[in-house]
Design a protein around this nucleic acid. Structure first.
Lengths: 343, 343
DNA sequence: CGTCCGGCTGAATACGTATGCATGGGTGCC
DNA sequence: GGCACCCATGCATACGTATTCAGCCGGACG
């Protein structure tokens, strides 16, 4: 039909008013009379007019958009995105839609430089940072963000000395719960699969919870029972194989994430171990796959739905200039077959 | 530090040049001397300057952004997003990043009105439509989009009379392959779980492929063996239970999607059927969960990676004004344990 | 009948960038 | 030495919208 898109001036001509009135009418200003408003609305519909967001955003100095930045360690195999973060993505999208914001999604995995630019270039009003990253490597950047006044929230371990606002689950309690669950069943040599250094604060918190539960039960925390692993099935498989190769005794496996746990279970199967009879296994995250693993995987549920809501709400508070605080969300142990020895 | 964000004029002052030169330098215009360019770059860095995308986009009349619109039938249980589309999301994001575009993501599931507005409001240069939707219900809207010149590509069944450009897998051949796989093993009463009406063209194509394979093998296509189901585990469970309740004989189950297959397998287990010994099962999509189902699920692989690339490339062609055509991608049968009877 | 006020509307401008056009200074060539 | 030419830069303007300010009209009130 019309080749060029209609502008508010076209609408103004058609409706016999000025451009200013068109703008006011379409934004719902009370200054416009009901009759004029209706005429303008009709004209706009007739020409398929839509407000030009670029012009509008430029004028208003905000974009009505949030950016979601998913960063994963580039060392991961790059194949598939961690399902846990996909769940988060879904809940964040939902929360954004409910609150009237659009969402820009970017995977650090796929691009080189930090798209924190999204906010600096006014393409987004704020940023959500998501990922099990090597936190220390990003710390300087977070501090830079704070310094130049970029609004952002981070999903991850909630620690007192962090720059900016974080939202995360209670990884410590989750780790504790898993360890206690094993201990109650009489396990005494519980392996931990996952990076236990402070570079990965979330895994580290899970490890600390695990270690404390062991100590409270009077059990030794044996370094030989801990194997580093990033959150992929492949790493889980490798780490489990490594543990078996060490030939140390173990009677339970706590994997720091579900993907690691699933990889570990496949390695156990290959080596002839039956789960849970020979060795019970538990993971962390409760990704959808966990329920359908064989056997169904015991894990720690992170409530992604409220996590997404809290992230977005906190970010919007910051954008509005209100003070926002870090939040730690509760977790829940989901006991399934993989961790329960038949009595 | 500085409260207000720096503009190109600030940079111009600091570098002792005009705003025009700043713009040219930062955009890499060959008109600017090397020395001046360097001075401007330094000034920009010093002030943490980033080009204001809103102003830039307004001036350039494009946004460097694509919108991904995921629409699923609102009748689904709304809990989790179909993992297959999440895979597509990942590959589309990757393709966008590689081609220098940002991606705006929206779930029709969560919002009421069509955000085709993204393109009309110039927030995006084009739209990617994704979803097993009731296609007929959207047809009028697609035609409207074509009419007003909105650039979009659609993931789904590729059919000759469709408005716009589509990219999809060869669902027909996939359905054929699954049916033949069962037939080769001597199955003669193969059930089909999934909507077989033309409202869901992708499922319908899979059904047509299945039906043709049966006929070519001289087998009857029995309507009693087909049960409607949308693509969720719950629907799969329900549909399978329904089939069992019908008390018709069946010796294989072809589910139109992996989620349906997984739901069906759980229903089979509840009724005491062993997969694959009593009844072999296959799905469609090859979502990550399929490999970890119990038993691992035979399914039809859709290559989401190239699908994402083709979608984005086609859309960019349209944006550049080049002609783009619908594309049908090949599929591949992934035989795993769920469909293979021990001989 | 004049004044004032309130309710609507229009004119003008700013948001920050990109670019066509004009300009200045330097260089080469005759 | 003068003229033409080119490279680098500055000036001015347009992109489309939202809002401030000013103006107009009609009615109410003194």
């Amino acid at each position: 039909m019309s080749k060029a898109k209609a502008t508010s001036i076209d609408i103004a001509h058609l409706a016999g008013v000025s451009q200013a009135t068109v703008s006011r009418a379409l934004r719902g200003s009370p200054l416009v009379s009901q009759e004029t408003r209706e005429r303008i609305r009709a004209a706009a519909e007739q020409l398929n007019y839509k407000v030009d967001k670029n012009a509008s955003n430029l004028r208003l100095q905000h974009s009505g958009t949030l950016a979601l930045l998913l960063f994963e360690d580039p060392t991961t195999d790059g194949s598939n995105i961690n399902p846990f973060f996909l769940s988060m993505l879904g809940s964040i999208t939902r929360a954004c839609a409910q609150l009237g914001y659009d969402l820009l999604v970017s995977f650090q995995q796929f691009s080189n430089d930090w798209h924190a630019d999204y906010a600096d270039s006014k393409k987004a009003d704020g940023i959500i940072l998501l990922g099990y990253g090597d936190y220390l490597a990003y710390r300087a950047r977070l501090e830079k963000l704070v310094e130049i006044g970029t609004r952002f929230v981070r999903w991850g371990a909630v620690q007192p000395d962090q720059p900016g606002v974080s939202v995360g689950c209670d990884n410590f309690s989750g780790g504790q719960a898993v360890a206690r669950h094993f201990i109650e069943q009489g396990c005494r040599r519980i392996a931990f699969l996952g990076d236990a250094s402070s570079h990965y604060p979330e895994f580290f918190e899970r490890y600390r919870g695990y270690a404390q539960a062991l100590q409270q039960a009077g059990l030794e925390v044996d370094e030989a029972l801990q194997v580093d692993a990033e959150s992929t099935q492949l790493c889980g498989h490798t780490a489990m194989s490594e543990l078996i190769a060490r030939e140390v005794a173990f009677d339970a496996v706590f994997a720091a994430s579900d993907l690691i746990a699933i990889g570990a279970m496949s390695a156990l199967a290959e080596h002839g171990y039956k789960v849970p009879v020979d060795v019970p296994v538990a993971g962390f995250d409760d990704i959808p796959m966990a329920r359908f693993a064989s056997p169904p995987l015991t894990t720690v549920l992170q409530d992604t739905r409220s996590a997404g809501e809290v992230l977005v709400q906190n970010l919007l508070m910051m954008i509005r200039g209100e003070p926002a605080q870090s939040v730690m969300l509760p977790v829940k142990l989901m006991v399934r077959q993989s961790s329960v020895r038949p009595s």
